[in-house]
Nucleic acid binder design. Structure first.
Lengths: 334, 334
DNA sequence: CTGTTAGCGCATTCAG
DNA sequence: CTGAATGCGCTAACAG
């Protein structure tokens, strides 16, 4: 039923030239007469020939595939990063292999290794769970890797990070400026470097303003809508006097709004809330969510560009790339 | 700096056996003595050898990669489908290549062809924009394809679809039962088969109940949060007397809630809203969104399972797979 | 049970 | 400007 895959040999035979000539025509490199080239391209079209990237990858050691590993594909943050990455990749004829670990530690390294075996030219990962040593050992013999929001020294790893601490500081400072003194924070249950920095920014800002008790007003859960929802319920039961909540990310922040509403607390009148990321939803929620904006699209874009640059110049040491944040005020705060 | 990729030859030399024997050990097929097998596996471990899937694909014609093409990765609907697909694939050692077309018609076929060239064993697509002929021509010489929510007859294409018409009917019928007579609908701007069926279900139900004017209360925009927001604004300006809105999908439905709030209409008191899909967000919005649930995870899972079944039995004709829907009532309706 | 030969589809040497 | 040989890393077919 199906036509057999047409190979370069078929084209060569049909066009009455050698395979090599066909190769030259389609890759348009090496000298070739315009006439034969056109002729060959016609035949290519006629037969519907598409060079097999598998075979190409085989001897160029270059697959034109990039791997992107994200922890939770249903958190809009990551798809937005992925869009930036895919657009940048697409522009250079690369394909992005997007994979999801569902925040399962065991899947992280597995996924990375699978991607490596699959022959990707490089990878980008948000991996937080994997042990540093294991990750380094993997990097020893793998393609170049971009690691986001983590500090790992390795010749084969390039770092890209958001200034998480400063972002958290902006949020908490705004609470304090607008008169809040009893401020809580929703954190990610799993340890991750970006989360650590956000917590540090939170506590540091409180202390700088002479406010104590920050530690006890932390409430940890999964970094999701329902995680934020649950964490908020617990937080408000323990500390009913809280008037402001800083959430690890927007998903948690949105869950927090929902929890407040259900508990009869009005946002922002009773409780002000600030999230982190500025996913699309944040501005469309009711009330809309104030947040610390991260340029997600640029993040994906820069990660890919940086990876591609590495291919040209593998030896070069590339300094960590820093992304700034911006405080966006909406209806969930004054 | 980087260790050179270790190949099967390295392992063979180190273990003092032939490449073939190594191959047998790692694929654990063919007879091989337990002793040599264990020895080889030790060496594999020692050297950190990982077989190149590229090379394997080269001569087995089997890459263990599946392609999944979605129109909008930032619509939570698709990531949830992707999770189902990835889990099902992962269980069978397959990897899913997830790609996003950003609803750009020009990218659809391109993406599919790229995936095919990349050597995926099969593809799943929500492609709506691509012309039927072009798609069929592509299918002629490609790997098996699962097409979701579209009706195309082709030996190489298997269909999977949601009962969109019935879903829409349930929603509109509920409006009518609860006393609404002036009902509007937010539709997808781009023609797509699933959207057509939902519109038909809407109109048909109105007519069955002797209600007219459905046609004029359609408002089209992009199937996104902001699309729903804009479409609702226009709809309510033209028809201020509307008391119920059925949205093409949840993203539009959520945007509709936001628009109503901003226009001073209370949901559900002034206007009742029902969406389609039941993405996670729907239940966490304020007010939470009533919707027509589609089992997204199962959708991804079934698509992959169906694809894998096709590999074993390429000739078999597989009947279209139907997915039922369920009306979920929440705060945005009575 | 194990080794040898061949070839997947293509690009990279080299010769003409 | 074009063609022939060689090999990428691996598995399938055959020998032993």
């Amino acid at each position: 039923m199906l036509k057999q895959r047409v190979t370069i040999a078929d084209v060569a035979k049909e066009a009455g030239v050698s395979k090599q000539t066909v190769s030259r025509a389609i890759n348009d490199k090496g000298e070739i007469s315009p006439v034969t080239k056109q002729h060959i391209l016609d035949v290519v079209d006629l037969l519907g020939y598409r060079p097999s990237r598998v075979a190409q990858a085989m001897n160029t050691n270059h697959s034109y595939m990039l791997g992107l590993v994200v922890p939770d594909i249903t958190n809009q943050f990551f798809p937005e990063v992925a869009r930036g990455a895919q657009d940048a990749a697409y522009a250079q004829n690369y394909t992005v292999l997007l994979t999801n670990t569902d925040d399962q530690a065991s899947r992280e390294l597995d996924t990375l290794e699978l991607l490596a075996a699959q022959g990707v030219d490089g990878m980008i990962t948000f991996s937080h769970q994997a042990e540093e040593d294991a990750l380094k050992r993997f990097a020893d013999s793998s393609q170049p890797i971009i690691v986001i929001n983590r500090a790992i020294e390795h010749p084969n790893i390039t770092l890209l990070r958001v200034d998480n601490r400063a972002g958290a500081q902006k949020a908490v400072a705004h609470f304090i400026t607008t008169g809040h003194t009893r401020i809580g924070m929703l954190t990610n249950r799993d340890f991750s470097p970006s989360q650590l920095l956000r917590v540090q920014g939170y506590q540091q800002t409180l202390e700088e303003h002479g406010l104590s008790g920050g530690e006890s007003r932390l409430s940890a859960d999964a970094p999701t809508l329902s995680g934020g929802y649950r964490a908020t319920q617990r937080l408000l039961e323990l500390h009913p006097d809280i008037t402001a909540i800083f959430a690890y990310n927007d998903m948690m922040g949105l869950g927090a709004i929902r929890a407040c509403v259900e508990m009869g607390r009005s946002v922002p009148d009773d409780i002000a809330i600030i999230g982190f990321d500025d996913i699309q939803l944040a501005s469309m929620y009711t009330p809309s969510l104030s947040t610390v904006r991260v340029d997600k699209y640029a993040m994906g874009q820069k990660a890919v560009e940086c990876l591609l640059r590495r291919f040209d110049n593998p030896a070069a040491h590339i300094d960590p790339i820093e992304l700034e944040t911006e405080l966006i005020l909406r209806e969930s705060t004054f």
